[in-house]
Design a protein around this nucleic acid. Structure first.
Lengths: 352, 352
DNA sequence: CTGAAAGCGCTAACAA
DNA sequence: TTGTTAGCGCTTTCAG
């Protein structure tokens, strides 16, 4: 039954012209008489012809698709996305931005990973969020000459020389300071840090800035490392912090899930938030808004990051110069967990 | 600088074999001596060769990509996704499910629309959420012979005959009854319906079931129609309901955004929720959990719907029989807006 | 077990 | 303005 879909030749034959003419009328490349164009279009319409995008892609070396590598999809439990809020806000905005550039957005797992969908490599370019030290994906893309943009720097690369991969700045340094200063201003004097274990810029730089910040204030740093994808990691962190002896009066937890668990863990142990200990999360999520108490956080503005990443990548693909760097992105959202009173969430720092 | 990426011929030359042999060692199709395979692989590795997925796609007529048509991306305000929660939960789960099938998931806008990314058509199949009456996309896919699966039936099609497009059942009928019965059980006797204007199964069937349900109970139906993408549509609906004279004591609002606005609108007019009027939303969202009061809703379980859609489509693409229909999906989540007391959200109906 | 060669549908020189 | 033709990189008969 399945009668082969019509090709450019079928259209050409039906319109009584050559394939070139058909190709040209659709691409608008050559010059084709209006009358001829009309005939071609009618023929195409009659046949229900649609150009084969894959063939075009092969020819032009350009499919019109960019890939978003969702690191979270590669976790041990593929059905468990950590930092869902960040991811879905990012992906949604990226899709919209891509459409605006006439591009499709493909969600893929790390193509260097085991469960890679081969199709991933069909894309014209990649957006890699949160690259890690010696990221195999970055290495692969670089060596294969595939254009890509990272969100967050590739850690340990800037030191090596000028071969910094193009990236969208997540401002981890500024935001860490913002969170720590906020805790300090609220009166906290023993501030701990709960970080994930992925060796990406967000974790590494936050720790570095935290340690510098502590040294500056003659505070003993207290860092707890918990894997991002560990369910209940926040609880565990709470336990470790309390058992360590020096109970903190302020904690900056880099992921929203861990912040949630942390607050719950503190509550179980009889610590009141924010009265005994103030908490700020390093990534925003709806769940932080519905938590009791509501939890302060850094809103990374994933939508804005996504837009910038797509624009930068599209520019690269189109041979255009990279877009200018915009305003600083990311801001602090103060909620109950870090404020004495309980005002509705209000924003500090630059906003859109 | 940009030295052309190696092709299968380069590998063949370097390994001292023919292209066929290379092709075979990678596809595992023909029989190739182990020693030869080794040579080929080494050569490929040295060259940094990766098969060109697009060329394979052209040859095999199969790219390994499925497209998710996000209707919300086609709204008038492309930066404003309505029903974000539903969409992002669906898209995330679909991506994961697709990966599990070895497929990439592409987020695209309606290819028949004006802002279509041409790349959309490169996909092997489509998932169309919420098709509408006389859906042009469905028509196009059908006539082009492109495999697709809809989420929710194509309205008005089942009547025409047996040409029902394969779809994942969203159970709009059962869920509408679930919501209405719940309002009724809580004591509501003048129940209104707030529906969107898209002519999709969800809206159409909900209205139909609502009217039948009312007739059954000798209740005068009161339906307010507000466009899905209208910001502040809920407020407007509240106004219209109150001005209409017969103030309802229960409302079922089909979208989460409108339910939110509705509750806010009632509050402004001095109506207390749930004491004066109970409200249930037809789609769940985090924002409903953080609203004051928290708002009851139908959780459509987008993750499950997405998994089913991907599996059904993958089966079709692979020529496998469609997966068996599973348990009924979607359940009621009771929150403060429809209950006298304020228990934490608890689920009725089947759960995973 | 390996190789030569014919395309998949389309684009872009180059000719006419 | 239109047509002829040679590939894009790969798979796959069909012969060796």
């Amino acid at each position: 039954m399945s009668t082969r879909r019509p090709t450019i030749r079928d259209v050409a034959r039906r319109a009584g012209v050559s394939v070139t003419t058909v190709s040209h009328t659709f691409s608008g490349n050559g010059k084709v008489a209006a009358a001829t164009q009309q005939r071609v279009r009618t023929a195409a319409h009659d046949l229900g012809y649609h150009p084969d995008v894959i063939a075009q892609g092969l020819r032009n070396n350009r499919l019109g698709v960019i890939a978003l590598v969702a690191r979270q999809l590669d976790a041990l439990r593929p059905d468990f996305l950590y930092d869902v809020d960040y991811f879905s806000r990012f992906a949604g905005a990226a899709a919209v931005a891509a459409l605006a550039e006439g591009l499709g957005l493909m969600l893929v797992s790390d193509p260097t990973g085991p469960r890679a969908a081969g199709a991933a490599l069909a894309s014209d370019g990649f957006i890699v969020t949160e690259p890690v030290v010696d990221d195999p994906l970055v290495a692969m893309l670089t060596s294969a000459g595939i254009p890509f943009v990272t969100v967050g720097e590739v850690p340990g690369r800037s030191a090596d020389g000028p071969d910094t991969a193009p990236h969208v700045d997540i401002e981890s340094g500024r935001l860490t300071a913002l969170a720590l200063d906020h805790l300090w201003d609220g009166g906290a004097r023993r501030i701990a840090l709960v970080t994930g274990t992925d060796r990406n810029e967000w974790n590494l730089r936050s720790v570095a800035v935290y340690e510098r910040w502590c040294a500056h204030r003659r505070m003993t740093p207290s860092t707890v490392r918990v894997p991002e994808e560990l369910d209940g990691g926040g609880h565990q962190a709470a336990g470790r912090l309390l058992d360590a002896g020096a109970v903190p009066d302020g904690v900056y937890a880099l992921t929203s899930d861990h912040a949630l668990g942390l607050v719950a863990g503190f509550a179980e142990r009889g610590l009141r938030v924010p009265d005994d200990v103030r908490v700020v999360a390093g990534s925003d999520a709806e769940s932080l808004r519905s938590a009791r108490p509501t939890i302060s956080s850094i809103d990374l503005e994933p939508e804005e990051l996504a837009r910038r990443a797509v624009e930068a990548l599209a520019a690269r693909l189109g041979g255009r110069p990279p877009p200018p760097v915009g305003r600083p992105v990311g801001h602090l959202v103060v909620r109950a967990s870090s404020a004495p009173a309980d005002p509705p969430g209000q924003a500090l720092g630059p906003r859109p």
